[in-house]
Design a protein around this nucleic acid. Structure first.
Lengths: 188, 188
DNA sequence: GGAAGTAACCTACTCCGAGTAAGGTAGGGC
DNA sequence: GCCCTACCTTACTCGGAGTAGGTTACTTCC
């Protein structure tokens, strides 16, 4: 079996087991067995247990970002773009709970590399927000926009965790964040 | 040495090493050595490595909550109470970076117990926010207030992480959150 | 066809650190 | 003096991350 395919297979299985039982309680032996391969193969391809987790996180975050970006493409109004981006985020959470757990690493993270990977993902999300905010807040300094962008990223992450336990639609969740961000930020 | 004092000593050392090197890269042997005691003593008092971490998290969160509550005591205006609570939060972060790392567990968390402990701390913080919001938004249903409370908790957590790398004062950070929350939520 | 190289894969380990079994010592109550 | 309890130790087990050193099988070049 060619390497690329094996890697994808390993990622799929790892994502499943990590999300199901958590990083700590997953052994490399188990992943290897479920893939139908021996442990050193995984080490050959991903370097370490943490490396494997990092690859899973990266893949999941990439999917989320792609969904967000696709949702705002071609939209002119800033308000509408913001609303669509937020809705896409919560819809993603809804249909990809497993990926969401991984992106957050469900607080069962491995080490510095994994922390950095998650932080890098947040930075991408923050950057999108900064761009968006600057379109309707041209006079606000970038450092302040960054603060707002961080706030929104944090707000969404937390609300997402709350959200999965409630009977709330993606639209409603998005509207809640919208209310704060749009009413709170738009110039008077 | 009496148990209570030993426990406090162990917590102090553990907090220091966990915050410094992360949960994963800290060994119980090392903590025991630095305390000047043998490993089974720590197991006798805290049950497990995760139990020790949970105790550290709980202590740090209790300190933060106490500071928050003290800051709003006796304040009448909702706006002022909110501002003071937020400022107290960021001031705490400023002067207790080590505790903050632990409260977040710096993404190097141990297992389900630790996750639950962190979540429980957030719930306390959320409850405070719900009470506060209901004072100036009496007509909004509780479930919606909860959503806003979660949003604010998430926003503060994220902004705190951003905050420690920047040259921003606690007051400014609080003002940024204030702008969104107050302008975003107050009834028109 | 055979030599040489390489990519995919394996068995059989090492080693570190969490957690434990079994016991030692010191001081207070009677 | 004796027992009981609380504090503390040495000396282990055991599971899982990571590795050394191979084997197999397919391609490539002569």
């Amino acid at each position: 079996m060619p390497r690329a395919e094996r890697e994808r297979q390993m990622l799929t299985v790892a994502e499943e087991i990590f999300a199901e039982r958590g990083y700590r309680d997953t052994s490399m032996d188990e992943i290897a067995e479920r893939v139908g391969v021996s442990k050193p193969m995984i080490y050959e391809y991903f370097g370490s247990k943490e490396g494997l987790l990092v690859a899973c996180i990266r893949a999941a975050r990439a999917e989320l970002l792609a969904a967000t970006i696709a949702s705002v493409e071609g939209v002119e109004s800033a308000e509408e773009a913001l609303r669509r981006g937020l809705t896409a985020f919560f819809e993603f959470i809804d249909s990809h709970r497993r990926s969401w757990k991984l992106i957050q690493a469900e607080a069962t993270v491995a080490g510095q590399q994994a922390v950095d990977e998650i932080e890098a993902g947040r930075q991408q999300q923050t950057a999108i927000n900064v761009t968006l905010f600057s379109s309707f807040l041209p006079d606000v300094p970038v450092s302040e926009l960054e603060a707002y962008a961080e706030i929104v990223v944090g707000a969404c992450e937390r609300l997402a965790t709350w959200y999965v336990h409630r009977d709330v639609s993606a639209g409603e969740a998005a509207e809640h964040v919208m209310r704060l961000v749009w009413f709170g930020l738009r110039p008077d």
